[in-house]
Design a protein around this nucleic acid. Structure first.
Lengths: 217, 217
DNA sequence: CAATCTTCTGACCAGATGGTCAGAAGGTTA
DNA sequence: TAACCTTCTGACCATCTGGTCAGAAGATTG
């Protein structure tokens, strides 16, 4: 691995750039490794190898494995939650929910690692993430439930449980990242295609809208 | 831990019983530990401690950690899949789907560990489970999709994608085990109650039935 | 260029972990 | 009861892993 880069031209880089470039590179690789192998299954040596840096250099930028993991988590939380705020009580739920489902699945497709890291975290009790869930995510969750209640009050949708509707949308869209290995086995494909994700969007949107008594158009 | 059992009466046990009892005890404890901490996060020492047996005794029954893990996986696969076969093309989807969702969520509630172990396995690429998925689960999946197609042919439900409908039902019901930590945080409860699971059943059943154009009664 | 600061790294270490093994203890059989 | 089989276990070991550190190498500043 170390010697693969054919032309390694040692340009003179500014210190500030060096720091940023390397941190970013490490975070990027660490994200991938943690997503694939989980926190405990990932070793600093593996991250170092994949990043093409000596192990001690990783530890120079991130003092401990835990600090590195938390840095990765913090970075992904934004990506993970970024579409939740898009829904407002003034939009019609038909459009808002359709867009939300579409964006959430697109995210599962484009950033499967964020999704997987969080899924693994939560699965094992969210030991590193609990505080963020209780604050950041809980706020988002409450706000979105409030939007749903607004729509219900306006008779734009049936009076279903906003909390459980959120759970259903989260889990079924997340599955397109978290369980994509399984799904592609069931579909007998090496991996899921654009059309498969589109079919997921269609089905989930349909179920959510019709299930909540919102006409499809 | 070792000395907690107040009255340890050394009854004379038959060899056959000894073997079965201990294997079962080890599998039970291992299931819990693996579910909580994942494969790599679990140590034989931790399983030994929880089972109140010396570490070497665990290794006597299961030669390696991997063999023990696979034994746990194999045991749980049955539990995990047991309700899939209950649906038949002769039943009306209203009843079949409702029962299936109810049973699946009941399972998430009663056997969260099976669900979590599989979720973690699949999340990390199903390295130990791939073969079983390709055979056992794939068969079940195909059979169930066939049932859905039968219902569609009979005009008992709208022509939705059977595959993605399965994914949606799986993921949204599994979430009541896999993401129960998150859910209880969102609901501001120490843990989910009977009523919460019931609300989940209601919502998912409603969305599935109405979403597939099946009247609720 | 010289002094100084930051980045980088090989060598090293302590503790954890999966696994082995010899022999003790307990059960079975004739 | 004696020979034999199965179960059990403390002690031990090789390897892996996160983390340290001294000093080299490179960047910055005056």
């Amino acid at each position: 691995m170390k010697n693969e880069k054919a032309t390694k031209k040692p340009v003179r880089r500014k210190l500030a750039d060096i720091r940023k470039d390397n941190s970013d590179q490490i975070l990027l690789v660490a994200e991938k490794v943690f997503a694939e192998r989980g926190y405990r299954g990932s070793t600093i040596a593996a991250i170092a190898e994949e990043a093409d840096l000596p192990k001690a250099n990783i530890l120079y930028y991130f003092k401990t494995k835990e600090i590195l993991y938390k840095a990765v988590l913090g970075r992904q939380l934004g990506i993970w939650m970024q579409h939740m705020d898009a829904m407002t009580v003034d939009q019609h739920p038909r459009d808002a929910l359709r867009d939300y489902v579409r964006n959430k699945i697109k995210q599962s497709k484009d950033h499967p690692n964020s999704s997987r890291i969080f899924a693994a975290e939560i699965l094992h009790g969210a030991e590193f993430l609990q505080e963020k869930l209780r604050t950041d995510l809980k706020d988002q969750f409450d706000r979105t439930c409030e939007v749903f209640r607004g729509w219900i009050a306006k008779r734009w949708m049936d009076p279903v449980s906003p909390e459980h509707l959120m759970f259903m949308i989260w889990s079924s869209t997340q599955a397109y990242a978290d369980y994509s290995f399984q799904s592609s086995i069931m579909l007998e494909k090496p991996e899921m295609t654009e059309e498969d994700y589109e079919a997921g969007v269609e089905l989930i949107t349909r179920l959510v809208l019709k299930g909540c008594g919102i006409s499809l158009l």
